[in-house]
């Protein structure tokens, strides 16, 4: 190769260098691309509008430093007919206060008019569904709760001593949930309820259930929700059409979430809707009900 040719080659090389540079500058997004793609993990949020599907806990948690004030109403059976205005003459309720403690921990208390029952729970998120650098296909949440029957004479059998511990029941549930798309979320909830005192010897102290809860969001602020528990070792005399099934509509108005639904379950905690006798769906023994949820910020985040 002669020197001349080499020089020409060098000039060409330089020209090529600058022209590719130009091309790069004109290309879309080229400037930011030079910073390199930053690897981030995107936590999946809002699989459900609230930490409850309808009756059961959902895979969602309350944000830290917030309180969810929940008022739950269940009217009487629609099958009662016009005399009771299709159930609207009767209502039971549960009032609850849930608190977000950390992003993965929340706790709450509530009281139901039925059995004057107090309940309290702790809920912890072990795994959080995420995408990106850290890919986690589902969320895994643990809930444990305790309930206390507050009636003056809680047991039909007068021989059972009315002690504090005899009034108690416990429930534990594991929630495995996945938000499949912006619209569709599904979760499974293996649940166990332990009652210290049961109505008769034929009834097991431990009841096991498998819950299936889901949501189909059809507008930005409205969603169809459902909540079903298949009770594996049912109380004798009850069949699967007594299993608690609720179908509802979530409406988010900005500050509130309204959950309107039809259900055969009267109970508003795990102990109640799994072990109390529910209506028979097949006989139309269902009632209208609603949950009202209002979230308050207890401590504002600093924006500085």
């Amino acid at each position: 190769m002669t020197m001349k040719k080499l020089l020409l080659f060098a000039l060409l090389f330089c020209a090529m260098g600058t022209s590719t540079l130009f091309a790069q500058n004109k290309e879309e997004g080229s400037l930011l691309d030079q910073l390199g793609e930053e690897k981030t993990t995107d936590k999946v949020t809002n699989g459900f509008k609230s930490p409850r599907v309808i009756n059961s806990h959902s895979m969602e948690m309350l944000a830290p430093a917030t309180m969810d004030f929940r008022i739950l109403h269940r009217f009487g059976r629609i099958s009662d007919g016009f005399y009771n205005l299709f159930g609207l003459d009767n209502a039971t309720m549960r009032m609850g206060f849930d608190f977000g403690i950390t992003k993965n921990l929340m706790a709450g208390i509530g009281r139901s008019t039925s059995k004057k029952e107090m309940d309290a729970f702790v809920k912890y998120r072990l795994l959080w569904q995420s995408e990106g650098e850290k890919n986690m296909p589902f969320s895994l949440v643990w809930v444990s709760g305790v309930t206390r029957n507050g009636l003056k004479s809680p047991f039909d059998n007068a021989e059972i001593p009315v002690t504090f511990s005899n009034r108690l029941s416990y429930y534990h549930a594991v929630i495995i949930g996945r938000k499949f798309s912006d619209n569709f979320t599904l979760q499974l909830e293996p649940t166990m309820v332990h009652r210290n005192i049961v109505e008769s010897q034929q009834i097991p102290n431990n009841l096991y259930a498998l819950g299936v809860g889901g949501r189909y969001k059809f507008t930005k602020r409205m969603a169809l929700t459902w909540d079903y528990s298949y009770i594996l070792n049912s109380v004798p005399g009850r069949n699967s059409s007594h299993n608690p099934l609720s179908i509802g509509l979530d409406i988010e108005t900005g500050g509130h979430v309204f959950q309107l639904h039809f259900s055969n379950a009267v109970g508003m905690n795990e102990r109640a809707y799994i072990s109390d006798e529910n209506g028979n769906w097949a006989d139309g023994q269902i009632q209208f009900g609603f949950n009202l949820s209002r979230v308050f910020q207890l401590k504002k985040k600093s924006l500085e």
Binding site: T40, T45, K220, K301
Partner: peptide, 24 residues
């Protein structure tokens, strides 16, 4: 000039506002 802003990174005083900002 080029700039990119990740919407999910916005922090609000109230968690519910942040949720509605992202969701709605």
């Amino acid at each position: 000039v080029e700039m990119a802003v990740l919407i999910k990174n916005f922090q609000f005083e109230r968690a519910l506002m942040q949720e509605h900002f992202n969701e709605n």
